[in-house]
Design a protein around this nucleic acid. Structure first.
Lengths: 336, 336
DNA sequence: CGCCCTAAGTTTTACGTATAACGTCGGCTC
DNA sequence: GAGCCGACGTTATACGTAAAACTTAGGGCG
């Protein structure tokens, strides 16, 4: 009790219970089936509780050569979506006795360009968003078990991938707008090099090209409201027939588009239909509420973590993209 | 080289450089001033680089008895703000060779109610938001160096506190609205037990009570857009003279209030002035743009981390609240 | 010449845990 | 009664690192 400030070790517990340190380890590690009597085990457990014993993780990790900790690498930018991913991943991790450490990719973190310096913990594996491109080379260098989120299955040599079915989401958006009667489209694309955005562009172009009489222009903007305002305002100001439907890569871009439309005196959805992608809180805060594609971020994180656990246990991760869902709200209507 | 799959240790480096393991540790730990010749040090560094050596964190942590890792405990709810806090904290941490692990407080994480089970890493200290109340008792039990964010300085026995000057922000809001001529106020309060919200209520009531002829009612809502819509709609529908100014504890609540106002046919700011607090991306996405109080989340995280570093080094953390700034936008105007 | 000092290392130890390898003792079988 | 086996432990060791304590060889100095 009056041992001072240092934390009790398994040896202290052993002494208190009148057994050897090994016995403590066996009991607390639940490996005592036929090795220790029930009575002794009970004594050990009580001593541990009384002393407030907690195993030293550093020692355990050293001994076992693994840490039951994984790194989740996300792009610094998008917070709400990846908060959901983290939550899902952390929940599944906790169920399996794992912890999850976050590494938000590049900017803002400063000198430590290296995920593994920043995450002091030693790691058993990594889950990385393909948007966090900067960190990826460093990750590859470590040859750790790796799961990629929303990454080109063909391009992620070796690594397992878990993807949202973004292509289907874009198809749903296109179908919805086409069936409303829209033919002149503007695609407000995220100016970020990532597979997940390439898919949007490819799928939209592909579907629209099948319908005679449609046209689609593209504008690019960084993923921020201000950036989207400028890009949209410019794109809608060019002479010639104006697009009647604006497909945005992302809800934030759509929010910027709203502001641009307002400045130009265009009413949504009467003069311009707008769609987003993500279903952030934003989407229902703006007026009119945004027609968008709901991505289940938590499920995404869960599936990512399950895939990594599978890799760690030598199983092969389950395949299949995660379904997404079009939410039709007030920002889309037939063209006037 | 052809050593197989296991990672090289300092002993491997030693062998490659033709020195002892101790020499490697000295060189790489930068403790070799008068202990090792420059030439040998160079050889060691090269060998380490060639082998791709990385020190085993678990072993180092065990040896040193500290991990250079701190836990940041945040409420699961609010993501954008705490993303900023994390970024600021992580930057400062990285500058000092520390890592930051996130623990989003209660819901969603599942069985592991215990921050220290979830964050597998052993910890040197903790930074905790007072909003993450559920986790606090567990944290206290560990007797780790602790810094509280936005917590009652009087009530956080022993622990250092770092606070935003929320009281000043509320005063600025009140001053602004009073000077516009508003006298009938509604306070849309976050239904979350936390000091940071108590301050808002206290300060607003206090300032308004000094001005004769003012009245203030209070409505409560959970911090979500939908919750705020319902609460605001109810509060604005009661008979009698309607409030002309709505002071919200938070931007999200304000976004909900916008929707409620719209449903009731009230125009902002003509029929109702609205203010928020946080300056989230939301604030400039909605129309009209929200008059709100900018909180510098990154600076908050920075200061929190600096305070914790001070505690860890036995210095006393610097005091003083972090200043905040009123941003007057389009959601406030004189009452009609 | 004898001494100490410094440079340049090496040997050894400890951190706390998990587990393989090793004892001991009573009881049962043949 | 010899042998063996299962129950109940203990002893010893290794994980990789940091650092204290020790070694060795010159060199300078009185």
């Amino acid at each position: 009790m009056a041992r001072g400030s240092t934390r009790p070790t398994s040896r202290d517990v052993a002494q208190a219970a009148g057994v050897s340190q090994a016995a403590v380890s066996l009991v607390l590690g639940d490996k005592w089936r036929g090795r220790v009597s029930e009575a002794t085990a009970q004594r050990v457990r009580e001593a541990a509780r009384d002393l407030g014993y907690r195993p030293n993780l550093a020692a355990r990790n050293l001994r076992l050569g693994r840490t039951r900790t994984v790194l989740l690498v996300v792009p610094a930018l998008t917070t709400e979506f990846f908060a959901g991913v983290y939550t899902g991943a952390a929940r599944v991790a906790a169920e399996h006795g794992f912890g999850v450490v976050l590494y938000p990719s590049p900017e803002g973190i400063g000198p430590a360009r290296d995920p593994f310096a920043s995450a002091q913990a030693a790691l058993d594996g990594v889950i990385a968003s393909s948007m966090a491109a900067d960190a990826l080379t460093a990750i590859r260098g470590e040859a750790l078990p790796l799961v990629m989120l929303d990454s080109d299955p063909a391009g992620s040599l070796g690594a397992a991938t878990v993807n949202l079915d973004i292509a289907d989401g874009v198809r749903q958006v296109a179908e919805h707008l086409l069936s409303l009667g829209h033919r002149r489209f503007l695609h407000l694309a995220a100016d970020v090099p990532s597979w997940t955005f390439e898919v949007r562009a490819r799928e939209l172009a592909s579907r629209l090209s099948e319908v005679p009489g449609t046209s689609v222009r593209t504008a690019r903007a960084p993923i921020s409201i201000e950036g989207a305002v400028a890009a949209t305002e410019a794109a809608l100001s060019v002479p010639g027939p104006r697009p009647t439907a604006l497909v945005c890569d992302d809800d934030k871009l759509a929010a910027g588009a709203y502001k641009a439309a307002r400045r130009l005196g265009l009413r949504i959805p009467d003069d311009l239909s707008v769609t987003g992608l993500d279903d952030l809180a934003l989407a229902t805060a703006i007026d009119p509420e945004l027609t968008t594609v709901r991505l289940d971020a938590e499920l995404f994180g869960e599936r990512g973590m399950r895939a990594l656990l599978a890799v760690l246990e030598g199983r092969s991760p389950e395949g299949g993209d995660i379904p997404v869902q079009l939410l039709v709200r007030g920002s889309t209507a037939p063209p006037r």
